[in-house]
Computed example of a mutant assay.
Amino acid sequence: MFGDPPPFKDRRDAGLQLASALMYLKKDRPVILALPRGGVPVAYEVAHELMAPLDVLLVRKIGAPGYAELGIGAVVDGERPQTVLNEDLVSQLGVSSVYIAEETERQLLEIERRRKLYCGDRPPLQVHGRTVIVVDDGIATGGTMAVALKALMQEGPAKLIFAVPVAPRETLDKLCVGVDDGVCLTVPDNFRAVGQFYENFDQTSDEEVISLLERQYVGLPANNSRAQATRHAQER
C-alpha cells in the first residue's frame, strides 16, 4: 500500500511554497541567508519572490581534540565571523584556549575559501538593523541552524526568522527560543530524515550554488542593499 506523495517535488518547489508563507515579510525588505549547499536552491526562490538580497551563511564545526566528530563549538561567517562555543562541553573536556584559537583560525580559512568559491569578491551581506531570514532545505537535529541563529543574534538584526520546509516538532520548539519567528511548512509526526519529504532530493552541487547566488545578485535592482554593500566595500 502506497502512502501519500511527499509534500515537495524538489527544493525549487519547496522554496516557492516557503516564499508564499513568507510574503508577509516582503514589505520589510529582508535579507535572505541560506545554509549551503542544500539550503541555497530553497532560499533562491524565497529571495526571488520577495525581491530580496541572497547570501550564504557558512558554519564550520570545531571538533574536540582527538574526536573531530564531537562538536565543541562552531565558527559562523558574516561581516564579523563569530565563534560559538558549547562552554559546558569545553569545560568538561578541559579544552585549552590555544586549541580553540588554532581550530577557529583553521575553520576561518576554510570559510574564506568557500565564500570566495561561492561569492567571488562580493562582501557578506550586512544584517545589523535588517530583517534576516535564515533558510535551509529542512532541519533534523537543528544543530547548525541553532549555531547560526545564535551568532546572528549578536549582530543586532531588527528581526531574526528561520524558515524551512520541514522539521520535527521538538527541534522547532528549541529553535524558536530567542528568535522573532520560525516558519515551517510541514511538521510531521513520523520524521526520520529531511529527504523523505522530497520526491527529488539529489545533492546540490557547488556549481548550482554559485549559479543561483549570481543570478539573484545580478537580478536585483541597482539600488538594492546588496549593490549598496558592494559599492560601500569598494569605496573603503
Rank of each mutant, 00 (worst) to 15 (best):
G3Y: 09
G3P: 03
D4Q: 07
P6A: 04
P6D: 04
K9I: 15
R11I: 07
D13W: 11
G15I: 07
L16P: 00
L16A: 13
L18E: 13
A19S: 15
S20N: 11
M23T: 12
L25V: 02
R29W: 05
G38F: 11
G38A: 14
P41A: 09
Y44A: 10
Y44S: 04
E45A: 12
E45C: 13
V46G: 07
V46Y: 08
A47L: 11
H48T: 08
M51C: 08
P53V: 07
L54V: 05
D55C: 03
V56I: 14
L57E: 12
L58M: 10
V59E: 06
V59Y: 12
A64R: 06
P65A: 01
P65V: 01
P65T: 00
G66H: 14
Y67A: 12
E69G: 05
G71F: 03
G73E: 05
A74C: 10
V75H: 00
V75E: 02
D77E: 04
R80K: 15
R80P: 00
Q82K: 10
T83G: 00
L85Y: 06
V90D: 09
V90E: 12
Q92M: 09
L93Q: 09
G94I: 08
V95H: 06
V95N: 05
V95M: 08
V95K: 13
V98T: 13
V98N: 14
I100N: 06
T104R: 15
T104L: 06
E105M: 09
L108S: 11
E110S: 02
I111N: 02
R115P: 12
K116T: 08
C119A: 15
G120T: 09
G120N: 06
D121G: 02
R122F: 02
R122T: 00
P124E: 09
L125C: 09
Q126G: 13
T131V: 06
V132T: 03
D136G: 07
D136L: 14
G138A: 07
A140T: 06
A140K: 05
A146P: 00
L149N: 03
L149R: 04
L152G: 04
M153F: 02
Q154V: 01
E155C: 03
E155F: 00
G156K: 01
A158L: 12
I161N: 02
V164I: 10
P165G: 12
R169L: 13
R169G: 00
T171V: 04
L172E: 01
L172K: 06
K174M: 13
K174W: 04
V179Y: 01
V179M: 02
V179W: 04
C184D: 05
L185P: 03
L185F: 06
T186K: 14
T186E: 15
P188I: 01
A193D: 09
V194I: 14
Q196N: 10
F197Q: 02
E199D: 12
N200H: 13
D202H: 12
E207M: 03
I210S: 02
I210F: 05
I210K: 12
E214R: 00
G219I: 13
N223R: 10
N223M: 09
N223A: 11
N224L: 06
A227V: 01
A227H: 15
T230D: 12
H232Q: 15
A233S: 15
